[in-house]
Every structure is written in C-alpha cells, then in structure tokens.
Write a protein that binds this DNA or RNA. Structure first.
Length: 895
DNA sequence: TTAGTGTGGTAGC
DNA sequence: ATCGCTACCACACTAA
C-alpha cells in the first residue's frame, strides 16, 4: 500500500473530495504505524475473498464482553481482510478497540485510540464499507470533549478550583491543563535534547568560513494544536474550530483559545482570544479539547525527521517549530541543472510531504540566508506552503514590506514605540533612521538589532544552545487565599514543585527570587477572567540560598521569609512565582564543595549588609520587659546589637550544659557577658515567647537625605560614633551611655528615617526608645556605608588562601546559618552534603585561621538547637562534628 | 565604571 | 467556570 500523496489531501482541502471517508485516514494510519508488521501476512488465510475486504487495513483489539461475542466479531473482521487480536502485547499497534465499556484505567490507556462499540463491526460488514466511527464511539462526542459517557462510577475527587486548600493537588491539576506550561517545558526539554557543545574554536572557524553560505529553514506546523486535535475529529475539519479548556457549549466564556484553524481565523478569531468573544464572532465555532500526548507525538515526528535528513544544526523554537541549518543539504544537490534556490525548493517540498505523511498535519517552511529571512519567509508561506528567500532582490523587497510587529523580538510594546516616536510601521520605514536615532528610541541593544534588521543582518547563531541559567515556576490563575495559613500551605507545595523540577534536570541552585502578583488598587476584587489574576502589581524579591540546593524545605524557609517580608494581605494575592538561579549541575561534586565556601562568604557579606557591623556599641540600659513589647523585628535588631557588644571568648571557659532558665528581667549588660551559647539560648527563648515571627526587615541604608533630616545634635552623635570607631577608641560603651539627647526626633523626620528602617517600626514605638538606641539605629546604617567601602577597597583576592580568609563569617552569621539549616530540616534530619560543608568549614576555621571558638561555639549551638529533637540522625551528625573539632583541636574534653 | 537588583518585554499555541 | 507558563534578554536604577 502506498502512502497518500499530498495532492490527495490538497484536493480534500479544496473541497473536491469533501466527503472523504474515514477509510483514507485508516489507510494512512496503518501504513505509517504498522508498515513493518507481519500480522497482515499471517492472517491472510482467513480471508474470504467473496466478501468486500473492508477491514483490510484494520487491526482490532476486542476488549471484554461484547455482543456479538468476541469470537463472532473476530470472524467478521478477519473474513473481510482485517486482523483481530485478543490481547495487547504492547508491540502490536492497534487501529481500533472494540468494547462496550471500559474501566477508568483502560479508558485512560486508550484515550488516544479509536474505541468503538461492537455494533460498528456488524453494521460496517452489513453496509459493505467502513462506517464513520463517530456514531459508535463509547466516548461522548456531543460536548466536543473526550469525557467518557458511560463509565464514571468512581470519578476522581473533583480537584480544587482554587489554590488555598489542597495545594499539592491544585498545582498538579493546574500544570496538567496549562497549555503555556506545556509549551514552556517542551521547549526546555527540546533545547536540552538538541544542546550541542560547540566549542569557541569551532564556532569561530565555522562562522568565518560558512557565514555567507549558510541556509536556514524555519519550519512550523500550521495552527498546531487545532490541526492535531482535529485528527480525532476529521468530520469537523471543514468547520471553524478552536482548541480550548472550556467545556461549556454556550455562554460568555473567559477560557483562552489556544489555537484555531484558518477557517475560524476568517471570522476574526485569533489565538489567545477568549472563547466568549470568539463565539460572538462565529456562533458555529467548534471547540476541541487539548490532546497534549498527540501534540508530543506529532512533534516527535517532526524532530525525528529533521534528525534523519542530516541537517547541520537544530534550534528548537517550540514544540511545533524549529530552525534548522540546511546548508549542506542544499549544496549537496547543486549541480549544472540545479541551482541553490532549486535545491532549497526541493528540500522544502520534501519536508512538507514527509511531515504530512507522518502526521497528517501540514507544515509551512521559510528558507533564507539567516534566521531573520527564514522567519519572514515563513510568515509569507503560511498556511500550508513554503517560501524561499535567497536572492537579494526578493529579500530586500520582502524585508522592506515586512511589518515591524511580525519581526522577531518586536512585540506590542516595541512596535508601539516605533510607531509613535518614529512613525515607522515597516522595516523600510526604519531604514531612514540612523543607528543613534534607533538606539535613542528603543535602547542601545535593541536599536542595534533593528538597525541590522534593516540591512538584512542577523547575528542569531542557531548552533549554540547555552546551558540553562534558571528554573522557575509561576501560577497566576486560581490564586485566592483566605488566610496566611493557606498561603503557607501553598508555598510549601510550590517549593516542592520547584524542587522537583530542579531534581528532574539534576541541578541545584543557590539564588532564589520570589514574585508576587498583588491585585492592583484600581482592579476589581474579582477579575473579568474566571479566577484570573486581573490587573496586578508585581513585586519581586530575591535572596541568596547560601548553598547549592534542591531541598524543598530548605528553599521554603527562605521563600516564605520573602513572602512574609512583602507583607501583602493573603486575600489580595493573585499570583506567585519562584525562580532559582545560579545553577550548577549536580555532577560537579568536588567543585561544588569549593563553591559552597564561596557562598558562605557571600552569606557573611550579606548578613553584614542586613544587620550592621559586628562590633557596634552596647546601648545604655534597656529593660527587657520593654524590649519584649516591641515589634519582633526591632527586638531582633536591638538584641543583635546587644549581643555584638563585648564578646567573651567562650573557647577559654568551661561551660555547663544545664537547662537554661530565663528570668523575666535580665540586665542586658549581664547577658552580654554570658557564655556564647547561653546568650543564644536566652535570645531564642525570648524570641519564641514573643510573636512567632523570625523575619528580619530588610534594612536599606540611611542615605544622605535621611541623615540631613536629623536634628543637629543627633547628627553630631552619629559623627561622634563614626569618628570614635575610626580611631578604635577603647571605651565605647560609656560614650553611648553617657550621651544626652534633649531634643526629640520630629515626626516628619521620622517619616524619612522610616524609609531606611523598614516598615515594621512605628513612630510611637521608636519615640519611646532610649535616645541612645535611636542614635544606635541610625548610626548603624551610617556604619554600613563605611563597611561597604572597606570591602570594596579590597583587591581582587583570587588565590585559595585569600579566598578562605575572605570566607570567614562572624560567629553570628555562622550560627544563623546553622539555625537556618536546622529550621529547614529539623524533622527530616540533616543532609550529608551540608554536613560535609560545615565539617570542612570548621576544620578550616581551626586549621587555617586558628579560630577555635567560632568552631566550638557553632557545634555547641547546633546541640542547643536540637535539644529534645527526636531525630537520631541529628545527634549522630552532632557527634561527628564534635569529633571533627576534637580531632582538630587535639582537646578531648570540650563537649 | 562595574555589578547587582528589580522590572518589563518577548516567544510559542 | 477554567487551568494567564517560563526562559531569557535588556533596561533603569542604585551603590560604591
């Protein structure tokens, strides 16, 4: 049997063969899918040549009880040239499944097959021809969806519409049905699959010798989703059709149209349009559901073919769209008879024919000397055609006439700019402008690109597919939270999702960006789109993770802090995004360890930036009872400053491991004198007594404006502090304590100051603080500038030893790092990887820096953090770390 | 100048 | 109902 020719199909499309029967389709399917099958030969002997061989291209699987019974059905089929089988072995591809009923499991399994009732076999035999299967389908076609009609006894629990309650399930459902998610992941997978490791040297060599010989083809399915979804509903092919998630047959729907066929486009319907509007334009519009698996199948056929014909490079653009370098392919055909353009025509035609044969969907092909031309040619070729743009005359003409909006990288925003500011609508309009004028209008880089476009220059090199730089997940549909708890639940699930994605590609990341979409002030509570985000303000916040990680709980601990820091009402949240960057491949175990130290260093710097210097003054007396009334964030700030006073080297003291009772009133000066880990425990205790909130506000620096706004005497104080620190004066405590401040900070000055302090401190509270604390607060920020300057002045420091020195954190940074580790993993237990890093870190502290106390205190702190923790793994980890310290210090009785 | 951060735009159906 | 994703680039802005 021969494959159908494109001409057959073209006729059908033109209407000369409009009543095309399903037979044609079946012919084709068998040819493609079973051309190697020997089954047909085997069954030849059962054929009754007196009967019309209507089933000759059918392989039927008869499932379960049927009427008539399976044996009778098999007889009918095989006597008329068909093949029937009683079981599926996974190797034999089947054209029809004959069944009266299907279990949900099988239902899913056969979702892509033609499942028909037994009566179809009987009636077809009687009619002497294959009847359309649609009247015999056990699948409900009336609603234009693939929902089964008969068997719904145990429907899965209806998934939640909104993200609040069953977050895991919501996220699963959402991504399963999101076309944009599928498109994005497909693209990533394809890019990964075709990633070529072209070296710098090869690239240069190739581009210098081949540049002017290059021929690029841009290949794209016509209305991909619509065409592929239509394969199962060929009787709708001549109608206006779209693909959408909506199952409603009427009414004003806000569901997106993912794809529509060209008949629908004649009504003005476009991709992305809402179904409701499309129905207004065309009441007869037919809706099909997504068929993601079929899309993948068609896509695979395209990419398989591309690989088979031996192209020079492949750059996936989308699941249905690809850029290929066909230079060699074309030049190989050139001879006395065949010009280069002829060769390109041949290649394009062959591509179109092969792809149609293997997918029954049409592609369009654009060919040009670079990506820009290929793309422009493709646009002209659509639908169902090809255009070769290789001679400079037609290139000039086509490029010049090309509307700016249709060029790559020029979207609605850029084209509006160019139209408004330069009155330019086509590339030839743009040719009038100089490089500088273009750059002034759209920016330097984009201006340069446009300038080159005008002259048919395009740098895009399709041979290079760079490594992935980020992994992210976004959801901005169905986000409606009623409480912070729901938000937290969702974030836990969501971090699981991003962790899953990292693990899937075997990568870890060390930098996190959280994006929140918050309903805009002027947007209605409920968006026009059902459960959509509506108009939103977007807020992004990012933070280092201090190690390469893919652990959901660890990522969560930081993600949640960022979410809390934004401090948006849960009810107003409309979208959430998580992005992980600074990625490494898991494989680089050794490298990674070293990199972790670089990250620890980063942690040290970062904390300094956030919380101030490590040797600030102790303020004058603060009543802890008063302190505990303050907002947690301010408490934390003050405590930090207390703790950073005079540090006693605990390494030289004998410390008891007794349970710690915290009296209600503590003299902070006394606290400051306590051994390190006891202080820590007190602080921890205080923190847990107060509001359960460990979020530090991100304190920006106090700028000159704030400084200038302060009363003269406070400015003086700050300068004093500044100078004194500079000269390293010994007795700092007294100066701060003795400082007398008489004037009040005024409210308007506070307003400015507050900008620099974060949102959580109110004027009322600030004003009640001891004046010296006010000064401290301000002073600290001033200090930051000095610190940063000092860091910035350090030379490059690239050699290993300098790096290790630079990695040193202060004790609190190290302890906070440990706290974060425990917080993230208290229940699940420590991860070996981090333990290794910490082990190496403390070894180096002792060996290289001779800093025993930080190492010892860190391990002791870890022990305190895990007091009463039931997980035995933590205790063995502590034992191991203790052993490390003991070995390094040579001292047996530290712990 | 340089480097980092947050924001915005673009592409695919 | 309905599933408005995601990688990457470029720019504006800030700090130093």
């Amino acid at each position: 049997m021969a494959p159908p020719k494109i001409s057959d199909w073209t006729k059908a499309k033109n209407g000369t063969n409009a009543n095309k029967s399903p037979l044609k389709f079946d012919d084709f399917g068998i040819y493609m899918r079973h051309k190697q099958s020997k089954l047909v030969e085997i069954c030849k002997d059962k054929v009754d040549n007196a009967l019309p061989q209507i089933f000759k291209d059918c392989i039927c699987y008869i499932n379960g009880y049927t009427s008539p019974d399976p044996r009778e059905l098999a007889e009918i089929i095989s006597s008329r040239g068909g093949v029937s089988i009683q079981f599926l072995n996974g190797k034999t591809a089947v054209t029809h499944i004959i069944a009266t009923q299907l279990t949900p499991r099988k239902m899913e399994e056969f979702r892509k097959c033609k499942v028909v009732k037994p009566q179809w076999v009987v009636d077809s035999a009687a009619a002497g021809k294959l009847l359309p299967i649609f009247d015999y389908s056990i699948i409900d076609l009336a609603g234009n969806n693939m929902t089964l009609k008969l068997t719904k006894p145990v429907q899965m629990k209806q998934p939640p519409h909104k993200a609040g309650q069953d977050s895991d399930n919501f996220i699963l459902q959402f991504y399963a049905k999101s076309r944009l998610h599928h498109l994005s992941t497909w693209k990533s997978e394809l890019k990964h699959h075709f990633q070529s490791h072209v070296t710098e040297y090869m690239t240069q060599k190739a581009s210098s010798s081949q540049k002017d010989r290059q021929i690029i083809a841009h290949i794209d399915f016509d209305c991909f989703f619509a065409s592929v979804s239509l394969l199962k509903f060929p009787h709708l092919a001549q109608k206006p059709v779209c693909v959408t998630n909506s199952t409603s047959t009427t009414g004003n729907s806000s569901a997106d149209i993912a794809s529509c066929n060209y008949i629908a486009r004649e009504y003005g319907i476009t991709n992305g349009m809402w179904l409701g509007k499309a129905r207004q334009l065309c009441p007869d519009l037919q809706c099909l559901s997504y068929d993601f698996e079929a899309y993948e199948t068609a896509s695979k056929a395209l990419y398989d073919y591309i690989l088979n014909i031996g192209v020079d490079a492949v750059l996936p653009v989308s699941v249905d769209e690809v850029l290929v370098d066909i230079s060699s392919l074309c030049y190989a055909r050139v001879n006395g008879e065949v010009s280069l353009a002829d060769a390109a025509h041949q290649v394009a035609q062959e591509m179109r024919q092969h792809i149609f044969e293997s997918t029954r969907c049409t592609i369009s092909v654009g060919i040009g000397p670079n990506v820009l031309c290929a793309k422009v040619a493709l646009r002209r070729a659509k639908p169902d055609g090809y255009v070769v743009l290789l001679d400079s005359a037609s290139i000039d003409q086509e490029l010049g006439a090309c509307s700016l909006k249709s060029l790559p990288r020029i979207g609605p925003s850029l084209s509006a700019k160019l139209s408004q500011n330069l009155n330019a609508h086509t590339l030839s309009d743009l040719r009038a402008y100089t490089l500088e004028q273009l750059q002034k209008c759209v920016g330097s880089r984009t201006g340069e690109v446009l300038f080159k476009y005008c002259r048919n220059e395009d740098d895009t090199d399709i041979r290079i597919i760079p490594d992935r730089k980020s992994v992210s997940a976004d959801i901005s549909w169905g986000i409606r939270f009623n409480s912070l708890q729901e938000t937290e639940n969702f974030m836990r699930s969501f971090t699981k999702e991003i962790s899953r994605r990292l693990k899937e590609i075997n990568m870890k990341g060390s930098f996190l960006t959280v994006k929140l979409l918050i309903r805009a002030k002027d947007a209605p509570i409920e968006s026009a789109k059902h459960l959509g985000s509506g108009k939103c303000d977007s807020i992004t916040r990012s933070t280092p993770l201090y190690m390469y990680t893919d652990e959901p709980d660890y990522i969560f601990s930081y993600a949640w802090k960022e979410v809390l820091a934004v401090n948006a009402p849960p009810e107003e949240l409309r979208g959430i995004g998580l992005q992980i960057t600074k990625l490494v491949h898991q494989d680089y175990e050794d490298k990674q360890q070293r990199l972790n130290f670089a990250l620890l260093e980063e942690k040290g710097k970062n904390n300094k930036r956030k919380s101030g210097s490590d040797d600030c003054d102790i303020p004058s007396q603060i009543d802890l009872a008063v302190l505990s009334q303050l907002p947690p964030s301010l408490q934390e700030e003050i405590r930090k400053r207390i703790r950073l006073g005079k540090v006693v080297d605990a390494g030289h003291k004998e410390i008891e491991d007794s349970p710690i009772q915290v009296p209600s009133q503590i003299d902070p000066l006394v606290v400051a004198q306590l051994p390190h880990e006891i202080r820590k425990a007190i602080e921890k205790d205080i923190a847990t007594r107060g509001e359960k909130c460990d979020v530090l506000p991100r304190l920006s620096q106090v700028d000159q404006e704030v400084f200038d706004a302060l009363p003269e005497h406070i400015r003086q104080e700050i300068m004093n502090e500044y100078d004194r620190e500079e000269k390293e004066v010994e007795n700092e405590k007294e100066m701060a304590a003795d400082t007398e401040i008489n004037d009040e900070v005024t409210l308007s000055q506070w307003t400015i100051l507050k900008e620099g302090l974060g949102e959580n401190i109110s004027w009322e509270i600030f004003i009640t603080l001891p004046k010296s604390v006010q000064v401290q607060t301000i002073c600290e920020h001033h200090e930051l500038k000095k610190r940063h300057k000092a860091v910035g002045q350090k030379p490059g420091m690239r050699d290993t030893f300098a790096k290790l020195k630079g990695m040193r954190m202060n004790e609190d940074d190290f302890d906070n790092f440990l706290s974060g580790w425990v917080e993230a993993r208290k229940d699940i237990g420590p991860d070996y990887e981090t333990e290794k890093v910490i082990g190496k870190y403390i070894s180096d502290l002792i060996d290289i820096e001779g800093n025993r106390s930080t190492a010892i205190n860190g391990v002791k702190w870890l022990d305190i953090l895990l007091k009463g923790c039931g997980n035995q793994l933590w205790h063995t980890t502590i034992k191991r770390l203790q052993r490390t310290v003991i070995d390094k210090t040579g001292c047996e009785v530290i712990f």
